[in-house]
Amino acid sequence: MKDPVVQVAPPPVHPFGHVLDCLSRILALIGGLLLVAITLMTTYSIFMRSLFDEPLLGDVELVQMGCGIAIVFFLPLCQMRRGNVIVDVFTLNAPAKMRGLLDAIGGLLMGCAGALIAWRSVAGTMDAYGSGEESIIMALPVWWAMLPFAPGFALLALVSLYTAWEDFTGRSVTS
């Protein structure tokens, strides 16, 4: 029986990769802290609802906004660590250079998608700001929650292009 292939990305050697790695870790840390805050807020709301029939109004809105931001903030580190889902059924026995080339193509596609979503996030944030759109219960401006998406997706695009370059040049473990 063959052992499964485990892909673990080494720490970046290139200075630009090191900067991207540090920025990705900082965003992921912020995302993690945001999830902790959401968990505490939700616990408080459930506690207040159970004991005093006084839930925190708008808790669902805050959870939706916070989870969206946290997910976007985790994506760059996930890409840097090569933790995104890959389907290697067809490439499991392929030569390392072929896998590296396919991973590079995947990184380029992820980079393009990240850049496109970052651009559209900026446009959406500006539109929400201009229209004055607010959340239903708390009347929070929606653009506040949308604002962090653009930098998160922009960093994802940069990290994806960097990992594609690593894969294409053969500098990563996965190739």
Rank of each mutant, 00 (worst) to 15 (best):
M1P: 04
D3V: 10
D3F: 05
V6E: 08
Q7A: 14
Q7I: 13
P10V: 14
P11C: 04
P12E: 00
P12C: 05
V13P: 01
H14R: 09
L20V: 04
L20F: 04
L20Y: 01
C22M: 05
C22G: 06
S24C: 03
R25D: 03
I26V: 11
L27Y: 03
L27D: 03
A28V: 07
I30E: 00
G31Q: 01
L33Y: 05
L34N: 02
L34H: 00
V36W: 06
L40K: 04
L40M: 14
T43M: 15
I46D: 01
M48T: 07
M48W: 03
R49N: 10
S50Q: 01
S50F: 10
F52Q: 11
D53S: 09
D53I: 08
D53E: 06
D53F: 11
E54R: 15
G58F: 03
D59T: 12
Q64W: 13
G66C: 12
G66E: 02
C67R: 06
G68V: 11
I69K: 00
I71Q: 08
I71M: 14
V72D: 02
P76G: 02
Q79W: 05
M80E: 00
R81H: 08
R82W: 10
R82P: 08
G83L: 09
I86Q: 04
V87P: 06
V87Q: 07
T91I: 14
L92G: 09
N93S: 07
N93T: 07
P95G: 15
K97I: 12
K97R: 15
K97G: 11
K97F: 06
M98A: 15
R99N: 13
G100A: 13
G100I: 15
L101N: 12
L101F: 12
I105R: 07
G107Q: 04
G107S: 02
G107F: 07
L109P: 00
G111Y: 00
G111H: 02
G111K: 04
C112V: 10
C112H: 04
G114N: 05
L116H: 00
I117K: 06
A118P: 07
A123C: 10
A123T: 09
M126V: 14
M126T: 09
D127Y: 12
Y129W: 12
Y129K: 10
S131Y: 11
G132K: 00
E133T: 07
I136Y: 09
I137K: 11
L140Q: 05
L140V: 15
L140S: 08
P141W: 03
V142Q: 01
W144S: 07
L147C: 11
F149A: 11
F149S: 08
A150K: 03
G152K: 09
F153D: 00
L156H: 07
L156W: 10
A157Y: 00
V159I: 08
S160P: 05
S160V: 02
L161M: 13
Y162P: 05
Y162F: 15
A164L: 09
A164K: 06
W165R: 10
E166Q: 14
F168P: 10
